[in-house]
Design a protein around this nucleic acid. Structure first.
Lengths: 200, 200
DNA sequence: AGGCTCATGTAATCAGTTACATGATTTG
DNA sequence: CAAATCATGTAACTGATTACATGAGCCT
């Protein structure tokens, strides 16, 4: 149920159309919370029905139309309440560690393949996180600048630091996953040697 | 869709009733993949319909009944195929890092509260992982011993080592989250001091 | 007799994924 | 005029959550 709060967080900075929101999502916040357009549009409608946001229809050209949403007072309150409420941690459901726990059930080749893919996946994630951190460092993140434009200068540091804090946490997790999978590869090698020694 | 493979992984070791399976789940594998009984029973029925497992009705006392499932050849094949196929990484959806990225939108108190809860959550997870690692170390894990009983002795080491590998990865992640949240607490403090200095 | 554990589910709902569907506007 | 991008959705399905529902057997 965090989707609506993710949307509110972005909309609070300033009104956006569903389309623009979706773009922002796939960039910045998308690294933390993915949502396809087919989920965003209906959710915006529901949020409007719940009074959290309001949509304003704007004409684009002759017949083109777009709906620009802004956060209502009730929406802002709901967001604040969410920020101050305890997060509900959903139960673990970790396919990678599930598979890792049973790697002896497959061939060394399949085990290595799994671990190589795990490394590739987290390396690409890490690259994305690093990219965001670079944006923050160079202050050219579209999102961040939009946000900084609407808050007083003495709050800029906090906005920047928390964003960095969040992405550094993600980057560290990615590095941890990569290091873990590399140790896994070493383990596969070692067990294969043990196995070869046992049956000459 | 990993639930059925998690169930197969446990059932492959030996036949179990839905009830026993659920118990095993909530212990060992449950740390990696949570599933409530209301999901396990229907899934077992579906797996039977798909020919992956077979259930045998057993009487318990006069009228009591239990269905003991075992993996079919087709189920074993499906499991092997899954183990050799690339894992599908579902998109990120991380409420904690989402909130962290926007902590400047709330009060220092709420920010600290969030971080304290994050630490408490991951400390309890870490304790569970450590507990499992201790079981593995002392070789008194119910699950592990069940597994070791049905595989040849020269494969014992692999079974043990992969389990350790998996849980060590989880424990490390937990430690990472704790360290990250502690740095977050220090950041909240620092920003509060900056803020206090700015408006005397 | 009462409480615990064994044992098995159904029903309603929600969140998310995938595929499909359509059309206007801008830019080269 | 064609292609890219702007713009908005619907429909079918899957996987997971929550709440409800029931009853037998075992131990004290």
């Amino acid at each position: 149920m965090s989707l609506r709060y993710a949307l509110l967080a972005i909309l609070r900075v300033g009104p956006l159309s569903g389309y623009d929101l979706q773009k922002q999502f796939s960039q910045s916040v998308g690294h933390v919370w993915h949502a396809p357009d087919s989920q965003i549009y209906p959710e915006l409608r529901k949020m409007q029905a719940d009074g959290l946001i309001e949509g304003e229809e704007q004409l684009r050209g002759q017949r083109g139309m777009r709906r620009v949403y802004h956060v209502t007072e009730a929406g802002d309150r709901a967001y604040q309440e969410w920020m101050a409420s305890p997060l509900d941690y959903q139960r673990v459901r970790d396919p990678a560690h599930l598979r890792a726990a049973y790697l002896e059930n497959t061939t060394p080749e399949a085990a290595r393949d799994f671990l190589h893919r795990h490394i590739a996946y987290w390396e690409s994630e890490l690259e994305a996180f690093q990219g965001e951190l670079d944006h923050i460092e160079r202050m050219d993140s579209m999102m961040l600048n939009r946000r900084l434009a609407v808050i007083p200068p003495d709050e800029h540091e906090a906005a920047i630091e928390y964003k960095r804090f969040s992405y550094e946490g993600l980057a560290e997790r990615a590095r941890g996953e990569i290091a873990w999978a590399r140790r896994g590869l070493a383990l596969v090698d070692r067990l294969e040697r043990v196995d070869a020694a046992a049956r000459p």
